[in-house]
Amino acid sequence: MLKINAISKTFFPNTVNEVGALNNVSLTIKEGCFTAIIGTNGSGKSTLLNAIAGTFIPDQGSILLNETEISAWPEYKRASLIGRVFQNPFAGSAAEMTIAENIIMAMRRGQSRPLRLAVNAAVKEEIAEKVRMLKMGLEDRLDNPIGTLSGGQRQALTLLMATWLKPKLLLLDEHTAALDPKSAAKVAELTKHIIEKENLTALMVTHSMQQAVDLPDRIVMMHRGQIVEDYRDEMKKRVRVPDLIETFNRVQKRELFDESVAAMLQQQYI
Protein backbone atom coordinates (compact mmCIF):
# COMPACT_ATOMS: atom_id res chain seq x y z
CA MET A 1 0.00 0.00 0.00
CA LEU A 2 1.19 3.48 -0.87
CA LYS A 3 0.47 6.46 1.34
CA ILE A 4 1.65 9.90 0.24
CA ASN A 5 1.24 12.58 2.88
CA ALA A 6 1.19 16.23 1.85
CA ILE A 7 4.37 16.25 -0.23
CA SER A 8 5.59 19.46 -1.83
CA LYS A 9 8.48 20.18 -4.12
CA THR A 10 9.74 23.44 -5.57
CA PHE A 11 12.43 23.32 -8.21
CA PHE A 12 14.96 26.17 -8.45
CA PRO A 13 13.58 27.94 -5.35
CA ASN A 14 14.19 31.70 -5.08
CA THR A 15 15.16 32.06 -8.73
CA VAL A 16 13.27 33.31 -11.76
CA ASN A 17 12.86 29.71 -12.86
CA GLU A 18 11.13 28.72 -9.64
CA VAL A 19 8.60 25.98 -10.32
CA GLY A 20 6.18 24.74 -7.69
CA ALA A 21 6.03 21.25 -9.13
CA LEU A 22 4.11 19.58 -6.32
CA ASN A 23 1.88 21.45 -3.96
CA ASN A 24 0.75 19.57 -0.87
CA VAL A 25 -0.19 16.37 -2.66
CA SER A 26 -1.74 13.55 -0.66
CA LEU A 27 -2.73 10.24 -2.13
CA THR A 28 -3.42 6.80 -0.73
CA ILE A 29 -3.49 3.77 -2.95
CA LYS A 30 -4.79 0.46 -1.72
CA GLU A 31 -3.01 -2.77 -2.32
CA GLY A 32 -3.80 -4.24 -5.72
CA CYS A 33 -5.19 -0.99 -7.09
CA PHE A 34 -4.13 0.11 -10.56
CA THR A 35 -4.27 3.91 -10.70
CA ALA A 36 -3.75 6.23 -13.64
CA ILE A 37 -2.54 9.81 -13.25
CA ILE A 38 -3.56 12.21 -15.97
CA GLY A 39 -2.99 15.93 -16.32
CA THR A 40 -1.79 18.67 -18.60
CA ASN A 41 1.87 19.27 -19.37
CA GLY A 42 3.61 20.56 -16.29
CA SER A 43 0.78 19.45 -14.03
CA GLY A 44 3.23 17.54 -11.86
CA LYS A 45 2.15 14.03 -12.73
CA SER A 46 5.59 12.80 -13.71
CA THR A 47 7.10 14.76 -10.83
CA LEU A 48 4.84 12.87 -8.44
CA LEU A 49 5.99 9.59 -9.92
CA ASN A 50 9.62 10.65 -9.63
CA ALA A 51 9.07 11.67 -6.01
CA ILE A 52 7.84 8.17 -5.29
CA ALA A 53 10.66 6.57 -7.26
CA GLY A 54 13.20 8.71 -5.40
CA THR A 55 14.66 10.69 -8.31
CA PHE A 56 14.57 13.61 -5.87
CA ILE A 57 13.70 14.08 -2.23
CA PRO A 58 10.57 16.20 -1.64
CA ASP A 59 10.84 19.45 0.35
CA GLN A 60 8.04 18.41 2.66
CA GLY A 61 5.80 15.50 3.41
CA SER A 62 6.20 11.78 3.74
CA ILE A 63 5.89 8.76 1.50
CA LEU A 64 5.00 5.45 3.06
CA LEU A 65 5.24 2.27 1.07
CA ASN A 66 4.23 -0.93 2.79
CA GLU A 67 4.11 1.01 6.08
CA THR A 68 7.76 2.00 5.67
CA GLU A 69 8.76 5.63 5.46
CA ILE A 70 10.80 5.80 2.26
CA SER A 71 10.94 9.51 1.47
CA ALA A 72 14.56 9.80 2.61
CA TRP A 73 15.71 6.64 0.83
CA PRO A 74 17.93 7.06 -2.21
CA GLU A 75 16.52 5.99 -5.55
CA TYR A 76 18.44 2.72 -5.75
CA LYS A 77 17.33 1.62 -2.31
CA ARG A 78 13.67 2.12 -3.18
CA ALA A 79 14.12 -0.17 -6.14
CA SER A 80 13.87 -3.13 -3.80
CA LEU A 81 10.18 -2.25 -3.42
CA ILE A 82 9.44 -0.47 -6.68
CA GLY A 83 9.51 -1.64 -10.30
CA ARG A 84 9.68 1.04 -12.97
CA VAL A 85 9.05 1.47 -16.68
CA PHE A 86 10.09 4.76 -18.28
CA GLN A 87 8.70 6.79 -21.13
CA ASN A 88 11.87 6.34 -23.14
CA PRO A 89 11.89 2.70 -24.26
CA PHE A 90 15.69 2.81 -24.16
CA ALA A 91 15.86 3.95 -20.53
CA GLY A 92 14.84 0.68 -18.95
CA SER A 93 17.54 -1.61 -20.30
CA ALA A 94 21.26 -1.60 -21.09
CA ALA A 95 21.52 -1.48 -24.89
CA GLU A 96 24.91 -3.14 -25.34
CA MET A 97 24.11 -6.08 -23.09
CA THR A 98 22.17 -9.14 -24.12
CA ILE A 99 18.50 -9.74 -23.40
CA ALA A 100 19.46 -12.50 -20.96
CA GLU A 101 21.93 -10.28 -19.07
CA ASN A 102 19.39 -7.50 -18.80
CA ILE A 103 16.76 -9.83 -17.42
CA ILE A 104 19.20 -11.45 -15.02
CA MET A 105 19.91 -8.03 -13.54
CA ALA A 106 16.18 -7.56 -13.02
CA MET A 107 15.89 -10.99 -11.43
CA ARG A 108 17.93 -9.71 -8.51
CA ARG A 109 16.34 -6.25 -8.29
CA GLY A 110 17.17 -4.83 -4.89
CA GLN A 111 19.06 -7.94 -3.84
CA SER A 112 22.75 -8.75 -3.39
CA ARG A 113 24.88 -9.25 -6.48
CA PRO A 114 27.08 -12.27 -5.69
CA LEU A 115 30.30 -13.14 -7.45
CA ARG A 116 28.75 -16.11 -9.17
CA LEU A 117 28.46 -16.50 -12.92
CA ALA A 118 25.25 -14.75 -13.88
CA VAL A 119 24.18 -16.57 -17.04
CA ASN A 120 23.82 -20.32 -17.10
CA ALA A 121 21.70 -22.78 -19.03
CA ALA A 122 19.09 -23.28 -16.31
CA VAL A 123 18.52 -19.54 -15.87
CA LYS A 124 18.30 -19.06 -19.61
CA GLU A 125 15.64 -21.74 -19.81
CA GLU A 126 13.68 -19.96 -17.10
CA ILE A 127 14.02 -16.65 -18.95
CA ALA A 128 13.01 -18.16 -22.30
CA GLU A 129 9.92 -19.61 -20.64
CA LYS A 130 8.69 -16.23 -19.50
CA VAL A 131 9.82 -14.27 -22.57
CA ARG A 132 7.82 -16.67 -24.75
CA MET A 133 4.70 -15.18 -23.14
CA LEU A 134 5.35 -11.92 -25.03
CA LYS A 135 4.84 -13.78 -28.31
CA MET A 136 7.53 -11.69 -29.98
CA GLY A 137 9.92 -14.52 -30.77
CA LEU A 138 12.50 -13.02 -28.45
CA GLU A 139 13.09 -16.30 -26.61
CA ASP A 140 15.38 -17.36 -29.46
CA ARG A 141 17.37 -14.14 -29.32
CA LEU A 142 18.36 -14.08 -25.66
CA ASP A 143 22.05 -13.65 -26.51
CA ASN A 144 21.47 -10.69 -28.81
CA PRO A 145 22.21 -7.21 -27.48
CA ILE A 146 18.93 -5.68 -26.36
CA GLY A 147 19.83 -2.56 -28.38
CA THR A 148 19.04 -4.46 -31.58
CA LEU A 149 15.34 -4.67 -30.67
CA SER A 150 12.57 -2.23 -31.54
CA GLY A 151 11.24 0.27 -29.02
CA GLY A 152 8.06 -1.75 -28.53
CA GLN A 153 9.98 -4.96 -27.91
CA ARG A 154 12.31 -3.23 -25.47
CA GLN A 155 9.41 -1.67 -23.61
CA ALA A 156 7.67 -5.04 -23.34
CA LEU A 157 10.88 -6.53 -21.95
CA THR A 158 11.32 -3.61 -19.55
CA LEU A 159 7.81 -4.23 -18.29
CA LEU A 160 8.59 -7.90 -17.85
CA MET A 161 11.82 -6.98 -16.02
CA ALA A 162 10.09 -4.50 -13.72
CA THR A 163 7.59 -7.14 -12.66
CA TRP A 164 9.87 -10.20 -12.65
CA LEU A 165 10.19 -9.94 -8.89
CA LYS A 166 6.76 -8.88 -7.75
CA PRO A 167 7.21 -5.21 -6.78
CA LYS A 168 5.25 -3.66 -3.93
CA LEU A 169 4.55 -0.87 -6.38
CA LEU A 170 4.87 -0.64 -10.15
CA LEU A 171 5.50 2.83 -11.63
CA LEU A 172 4.71 3.37 -15.30
CA ASP A 173 5.77 6.78 -16.61
CA GLU A 174 3.93 7.31 -19.92
CA HIS A 175 5.44 4.03 -20.95
CA THR A 176 3.55 3.81 -24.23
CA ALA A 177 3.85 7.45 -25.27
CA ALA A 178 7.03 7.04 -27.32
CA LEU A 179 5.87 3.94 -29.20
CA ASP A 180 4.12 3.61 -32.53
CA PRO A 181 0.34 3.08 -32.15
CA LYS A 182 0.48 -0.67 -32.75
CA SER A 183 3.29 -1.30 -30.26
CA ALA A 184 1.64 1.06 -27.79
CA ALA A 185 -1.56 -0.97 -27.93
CA LYS A 186 0.37 -4.18 -27.46
CA VAL A 187 2.34 -2.86 -24.48
CA ALA A 188 -0.86 -1.46 -22.96
CA GLU A 189 -2.52 -4.83 -23.27
CA LEU A 190 0.51 -6.54 -21.76
CA THR A 191 0.47 -4.04 -18.90
CA LYS A 192 -3.12 -4.85 -18.08
CA HIS A 193 -2.48 -8.57 -18.36
CA ILE A 194 0.54 -8.60 -16.05
CA ILE A 195 -1.02 -6.29 -13.48
CA GLU A 196 -4.17 -8.40 -13.35
CA LYS A 197 -2.34 -11.70 -13.22
CA GLU A 198 0.07 -10.64 -10.49
CA ASN A 199 -2.48 -8.45 -8.73
CA LEU A 200 0.02 -5.58 -8.65
CA THR A 201 -0.35 -2.18 -7.08
CA ALA A 202 0.49 0.16 -9.94
CA LEU A 203 0.65 3.85 -10.70
CA MET A 204 0.60 4.88 -14.35
CA VAL A 205 1.14 8.35 -15.75
CA THR A 206 -0.47 8.66 -19.14
CA HIS A 207 -1.26 11.22 -21.79
CA SER A 208 -3.86 9.02 -23.37
CA MET A 209 -7.25 9.56 -21.77
CA GLN A 210 -8.55 6.51 -23.59
CA GLN A 211 -5.86 4.48 -21.85
CA ALA A 212 -6.81 6.02 -18.52
CA VAL A 213 -10.40 4.99 -19.08
CA ASP A 214 -9.64 1.50 -20.37
CA LEU A 215 -6.87 0.14 -18.18
CA PRO A 216 -6.90 1.11 -14.51
CA ASP A 217 -9.23 0.93 -11.52
CA ARG A 218 -8.88 4.55 -10.58
CA ILE A 219 -8.06 7.86 -12.28
CA VAL A 220 -6.38 10.76 -10.53
CA MET A 221 -6.27 14.07 -12.37
CA MET A 222 -3.55 16.61 -11.60
CA HIS A 223 -3.24 20.28 -12.42
CA ARG A 224 -0.60 22.78 -11.33
CA GLY A 225 0.96 20.38 -8.86
CA GLN A 226 -2.29 19.44 -7.20
CA ILE A 227 -4.80 16.64 -7.42
CA VAL A 228 -7.98 18.18 -8.79
CA GLU A 229 -10.11 15.13 -9.41
CA ASP A 230 -10.19 11.54 -8.25
CA TYR A 231 -12.40 9.02 -10.02
CA ARG A 232 -12.64 5.76 -8.12
CA ASP A 233 -14.87 2.70 -7.70
CA GLU A 234 -18.34 3.37 -9.17
CA MET A 235 -17.33 6.80 -10.44
CA LYS A 236 -14.44 5.28 -12.37
CA LYS A 237 -16.69 2.71 -14.01
CA ARG A 238 -18.99 5.44 -15.27
CA VAL A 239 -16.37 7.88 -16.50
CA ARG A 240 -15.72 8.23 -20.25
CA VAL A 241 -13.19 10.24 -22.24
CA PRO A 242 -15.54 13.23 -22.84
CA ASP A 243 -16.11 13.45 -19.07
CA LEU A 244 -12.36 13.70 -18.54
CA ILE A 245 -12.02 16.37 -21.22
CA GLU A 246 -14.86 18.32 -19.64
CA THR A 247 -13.19 18.10 -16.25
CA PHE A 248 -9.97 19.41 -17.79
CA ASN A 249 -11.87 22.32 -19.28
CA ARG A 250 -13.52 23.05 -15.97
CA VAL A 251 -10.20 23.04 -14.19
CA GLN A 252 -8.72 25.37 -16.79
CA LYS A 253 -11.74 27.66 -16.61
CA ARG A 254 -11.25 27.90 -12.89
CA GLU A 255 -7.65 28.80 -13.56
CA LEU A 256 -8.73 31.72 -15.78
CA PHE A 257 -11.07 33.04 -13.10
CA ASP A 258 -8.75 35.54 -11.45
CA GLU A 259 -9.20 38.61 -9.33
CA SER A 260 -9.87 40.87 -12.31
CA VAL A 261 -12.69 38.54 -13.37
CA ALA A 262 -14.10 38.67 -9.86
CA ALA A 263 -14.04 42.47 -9.95
CA MET A 264 -15.65 42.56 -13.40
CA LEU A 265 -18.40 40.13 -12.38
CA GLN A 266 -19.18 42.24 -9.35
CA GLN A 267 -20.36 44.88 -11.83
CA GLN A 268 -21.84 42.48 -14.35
CA TYR A 269 -23.26 39.60 -12.39
CA ILE A 270 -26.23 41.08 -10.61
Binding site: Y76, S80, S93, A94, M97, A106
Partner: peptide
Protein backbone atom coordinates in the same frame (compact mmCIF):
# COMPACT_ATOMS: atom_id res chain seq x y z
CA UNK B 1 27.04 -7.74 -15.13
CA UNK B 2 25.72 -4.77 -13.19
CA UNK B 3 29.13 -3.09 -13.46
CA UNK B 4 28.99 -3.31 -17.24
CA UNK B 5 25.41 -2.03 -17.24
CA UNK B 6 26.49 1.01 -15.22
CA UNK B 7 28.37 2.45 -18.17
CA UNK B 8 25.55 1.54 -20.49
CA UNK B 9 22.56 2.92 -18.59
CA UNK B 10 23.06 4.19 -15.04
CA UNK B 11 19.35 5.00 -14.75
CA UNK B 12 18.48 1.38 -15.36
CA UNK B 13 21.07 0.23 -12.84
CA UNK B 14 19.51 2.45 -10.17
CA UNK B 15 16.10 1.12 -11.06
CA UNK B 16 17.45 -2.36 -10.40
CA UNK B 17 18.40 -1.36 -6.88
CA UNK B 18 22.12 -0.81 -7.38
Amino acid sequence: TVLRATGNNPQMVRAQGV
